[in-house]
């Protein structure tokens, strides 16, 4: 633990200095994820939390899956005209009721970029677009400005510990990536995360895996878009395809703001559940009411017809 804290402190210091250096440096200074994964940059802007960058740990099937894999669980809502749109990421903004399109000045916009390139506004929906590995996905909250951080370049062959499984790889790379952009305490958690796996450097998904098993599950079931993680922690090494594992690593329940963000996100999402969930019993009750009214109406019309 102490070692961890120490590592966190070091990373934190680096983080503080980093932005100053990076602020002037173009994207090249920031390193992205490996070329076999997709980098996800989420700029929370006015919601607090700044711009965060994570890797998906694999090739996600769609922009939504990329978000989930990267540890930013999206909440989707049905827009008035058609289809879905992402109305919350990681549970923010919490005050958007998600019943119709978010107001123009406070909504999530979707961007693409090549690694190290520049942001271009997406012309597809997040669930329809399949990001190619090595590209960068961007999400920005506000009035439609691109994320405030430039798209990171991809990382070279990672100097990662002998962890062939992708989950471990992005971890070191994440530190500088996470360093890019204004960070509050979100930086520290990331650093802590990256720090955490590094020292253990155990085989397999051990290090991230350790906290992971508990947390992996969330990621794995992020598909279902809700927390309580199942115990799929064992999967990560083998299943590169399971983007869930990566968010698992990020959803480190052990520490800090970001995971607290995540957990608050989780709790927030969890909190929504009871009010918007129903059961077959409710449907049955409604059906009974409707049938009663319909029967009464038929009876009325028959009585009127007879008396006419």
């Amino acid at each position: 633990m102490t070692l961890r804290r120490a590592a966190a402190a070091v990373a934190g210091a680096v983080m503080v200095v980093g932005p100053v250096l990076v602020a002037t440096a173009p994207p090249a200074a920031a390193a992205g994820c490996s070329t076999s994964e997709v980098t996800v940059v989420v700029d929370f802007a006015s919601l607090g939390g700044g711009a965060q960058t994570r890797c998906t740990g694999g090739d996600p099937g769609s922009g939504v899956q990329a978000l989930q894999a990267a540890g930013f669980p999206p909440t989707r809502a049905a827009a008035e005209r058609s289809g879905y749109f992402v109305c919350r990421i990681s549970g923010k903004p919490a005050d958007d009721p998600c019943q119709r399109a978010s107001p123009a000045g406070a909504s999530w916009s979707y961007w693409h970029a090549k690694a190290g390139g520049s942001w271009s506004y997406s012309s597809s929906a997040a669930s329809a677009y399949d990001p190619a590995p090595g590209t960068v996905e961007g999400w920005s909250f506000g009035s439609g400005a691109p994320p405030s951080v430039p798209p990171p370049a991809s990382a070279p062959a990672p100097a990662a510990p002998a962890d062939p499984p992708p989950p471990a790889q992005p971890a070191p790379a994440r530190a500088p990536v996470a360093a890019a952009g204004p960070q509050t305490q979100a930086g520290a958690p990331a650093g802590a995360r990256s720090g955490a796996p590094a020292p253990p450097a155990a085989g397999g998904a051990a290090a991230p895996g350790a906290p992971a098993p508990g947390a992996t599950a969330p990621g794995a079931t992020a598909q279902a878009a809700e927390p309580p993680p199942a115990a799929e922690g064992s999967q990560p090494p083998a299943a590169t395809g399971t983007p869930g594992t990566v968010p698992a690593a990020s959803r480190d329940a052990t520490s800090d703001g970001d995971s607290s963000d995540g957990s608050t996100g989780t709790t927030e999402v969890a909190a929504e559940e009871p009010s918007s969930s129903g059961s077959a019993l409710g449907v049955l009750a409604a059906a009974v009411v409707v049938a009663a009214l319909a029967g009464a109406a038929v009876h009325q019309s028959r009585r009127r017809r007879d008396s006419a």
Binding site: R76, A77, Q99, A225, S276, S279, A280
Partner: peptide, 16 residues
Amino acid sequence: PLLLHPSLDPLRWPPL
């Protein structure tokens, strides 16, 4: 507001 707008994500029975 959420009471009147059941969410579809996840898919579950609408509440009454």
